[in-house]
């Protein structure tokens, strides 16, 4: 399929219609920034954005997820026995996801869906989600997707790629799931050769607008121990205040904690996003902590993304170049500089 054209009005109307039968996440303005929100009649989607403040990872991997429920009521024969919290995983779509964030889902998927273990909540939700991407006509100054296997119009991890042509969207279905979704939206119009050519030129121009790049070619050459012992970690970590913002904004950070919560006699086992920036993350019961110093924790975060992940999966770095951590780090730690240091070491 070459591409179908929808006027933005048609697209909006069709999405709203479809949102009556399935959950659709769209970007929407929230004060000074955008975030993904469930489409309903009380809100206006806004596709005129660079990227959302938070990555859309929570659509598949919620910040807090009820895993199990149980009763502590001794009169119940099932007291203290955990049951999977009942929930269903109907088809859902995220429309307007940037190609970098879609790429991130692929990167995280190898963790949660591996030959030995399948995380039941991630796997079911990921499979139920249709990813409708929106190419980036105007990338940010902090974007470096093209250095890490992506691009402003990359199709990685997407079922459909949308191209904003001003008053119309050009939609290209990439997977079967994408074709099915587009069929539900409507037929649109067949894009003419001229329109396709214009779109291709615009996509190429967007590539040229990516002003940041990072080197990755030598990350595999050094051993983990060599990079671990490199002299630059103290300097990188020095300003860090261990706030964890980078880990919460990052589309490829997947670490989580598991906690129990009880109200009266009913309880839940819940998993929550966690962060390797916090000392509690690795504190042993004995009091020993293998990463008690912040330099160890900062090193862990970058080593995980740029070395351990690279060695473990042979699938590139665990960074999609979205630039969120660069933009929002309160002390200006810049992962692009860490790429330079690690790759150049």
């Amino acid at each position: 399929m070459k591409g179908r054209l929808f006027t933005k009005k048609e697209w909006d109307k069709a999405l709203r219609e479809l949102s009556k039968s399935q959950k659709i996440f769209v970007p929407a303005k929230e004060k000074d920034f955008h975030n993904f929100t469930v489409l309903d009649n009380n809100m206006e989607p806004d596709f005129d954005f660079q990227n959302t403040r938070l990555s859309p990872k929570s659509i598949v991997f919620p910040q807090s997820e009820r895993m199990f429920e149980y009763t502590l009521d001794e009169t119940s024969p099932d007291a203290h026995i955990l049951k999977e919290a009942p929930k269903d995983f109907p088809p859902q779509a995220v429309v307007g996801i940037r190609p970098c964030d879609a790429h991130a889902f692929q990167i995280v998927n190898v963790n949660f869906d591996n030959p030995e273990y399948k995380d039941p909540w991630w796997v079911r939700r990921y499979r139920a989600t249709t990813f409708v991407g929106l190419g980036c006509n105007e990338p940010c100054s902090t974007c470096f997707c093209t250095s890490v296997g992506g691009g402003p119009f990359s199709e990685k991890g997407l079922d459909i790629l949308l191209h904003d042509l001003g008053d119309r969207f050009l939609a290209k279905a990439i997977t079967e799931k994408g074709i099915e979704f587009l069929d539900k939206i409507g037929s649109g119009k067949e894009a003419s050769e001229q329109t396709l050519k214009k779109a291709a030129l615009e996509a190429e121009a967007a590539l040229g607008k990516i002003s940041s790049s990072v080197p990755t070619d030598r990350l595999k050459e050094k051993t983990e121990i060599e990079l671990f012992d490199a002299p630059f970690w103290e300097k990188i970590a020095f300003p860090c205040i261990n706030c964890g913002t980078c880990t919460y904004l990052c589309p490829t950070c997947w670490c989580f904690d598991i906690q129990d919560e009880v109200f009266r006699k009913e309880g839940d086992r819940i998993r929550n996003w966690d962060s390797c920036m916090f000392p509690l993350f690795t504190l042993h019961g004995s009091g020993h902590n293998p990463r008690e110093k912040k330099v160890q924790r900062v090193r862990q975060r970058f080593m995980h993304k740029l070395k351990y992940y690279v060695d473990k999966y042979g699938n590139g770095v665990a960074c999609v170049g979205c630039g969120r951590c660069v933009q929002f780090c309160p002390v200006n730690i810049d992962i692009r500089e860490v790429f330079e240091l690690m790759n150049g070491y």
């Binding site: 963790n111 949660f112 273990y117 995380d119 983990e224 121990i225 671990f228 997947w254 670490c255 989580f256 904690d257 598991i258 998993r271 966690d274 390797c276 993350f281 690795t282 293998p290 862990q300 080593m303 995980h304 351990y308 060695d311």
Partner: peptide, 8 residues
């Protein structure tokens, strides 16, 4: 899966 007990 949860990411905390890694060594390298």
């Amino acid at each position: 899966l949860c990411g905390r007990c890694n060594i390298g």
